[in-house]
Design a protein around this nucleic acid. Sequence first.
DNA 1: TAATTGTTCTTCGTATACACTTTGTCCGGA
DNA 2: TCCGGACAAAGTGTATACGAAGAACAATTA
Lengths: 226, 226
Amino acid sequence: MAEDLRDKLGAQHLPLRDQVLAALRTAIIDGDYLPGERLTEDRLAEDFGVSRNPVREALRVAEAEGFVVILPRRGAVVASPSSGTITDMFAVRERLETLAARLAAERATSADVASLRALLDQGREATQRHDLARVAELNSMLHLRILQISGNPWLSSIAKSLYLHVQWVFRLGAAERAPHSWAEHIQLVDAIESGDGDRAERAALDHLDAASAAAYENAEGGYGAR
Amino acid sequence: MAEDLRDKLGAQHLPLRDQVLAALRTAIIDGDYLPGERLTEDRLAEDFGVSRNPVREALRVAEAEGFVVILPRRGAVVASPSSGTITDMFAVRERLETLAARLAAERATSADVASLRALLDQGREATQRHDLARVAELNSMLHLRILQISGNPWLSSIAKSLYLHVQWVFRLGAAERAPHSWAEHIQLVDAIESGDGDRAERAALDHLDAASAAAYENAEGGYGAR
DNA sequence: TAATTGTTCTTCGTATACACTTTGTCCGGA
DNA sequence: TCCGGACAAAGTGTATACGAAGAACAATTA
């Protein structure tokens, strides 16, 4: 029982600041904190039940990641993504995720491919159950897994951050499109399995173009220019 | 005008944490803190003459940027770039900086081109004076200026961060190669001025390939795998 | 020698204090 | 009514202190 306690404490070894950062990110992505909303340190500290220090450290990282803007002596506000950043984000994603697809195709082991196929299967099931939230989640997992398979940490961490931002901006539309994008995902995984870098890159590009087009449609009347 | 003054002073106020972060970054890039070296909060606080709080906040951001690694309950150490990360960084840079060159070519105003030409001129002069440090500095400024001209903030900030890391890893070799790379820079600016995106992208790629090759030569016997 | 126990260093989180900015409010005067 | 300035409130920026807990290393014991 003393061991249980120690295990729990040991497993807890996620610093509070990281937990706060994760909570802050998801709160922003989920729309619990809206763009432009003011985030005072005291308020966040209270919301998360911690003192100001972990909150401050989390805020600095969140700023570096582009989720909040910090004005000196005035504090933090949730960042306001504009339609301009949509175009910009997809331009960068196109370059990075096609590279990820190519590298994944060149490096994927059979176990890697199997893990992708497993995600696809689960996605198909979830689609049949009309569980859109789960489909969207599996969608994310698939993308992140491909990044991981690419084996390039820089690429992975940068693209992951971009992906989070895309989710933030299109959290509404993404869930709807998820089932449609699944066919594109199958193409992508097939291409990766084939080991053909060019083909994988093309499949990723097709997918991104479709996602970008859908994003634009969805953005009409969404966040305006700002 | 009183308003202007207040605005300026307010905006000018650099929080200590930002100053610490900047100092930490340059200290790491310049090799004052060597890879693997332990960075205790007390020591940094003393080095920079501030309390531990700003240091901690700067460290979190430095971790997010990849300059330090923080081990829970054990503190921060300077990150150790391996030859693997060199390859990975250049793979990403190739995708991003070619995109930047294309966008710059498509969007550059005549004033933008003039500013690039001005940097080229200064670089030529500095080369004639054999002022390698200045050449390297202008080299950086040119790259960052192109990123700025691309008009894509995501691209700009991500590529800038990568560029800093490249400088860190190759701070020795970069200065030597700077004069040689100047010819490639001229090609690049010419291409941007022409407004031909494809050509700009090709010029950027040539430049990166040369830089990458030089980096590898220089890395022999440098930082090993780690 | 090997295992155990202390000891020390350091991080992690909390709490407190205070200077300084920014912001908002209120009040008197034109 | 509108303006401008005094004044108060809110919140950040920075410093400091303290206790708990973990990690590393030395000392001690079997």
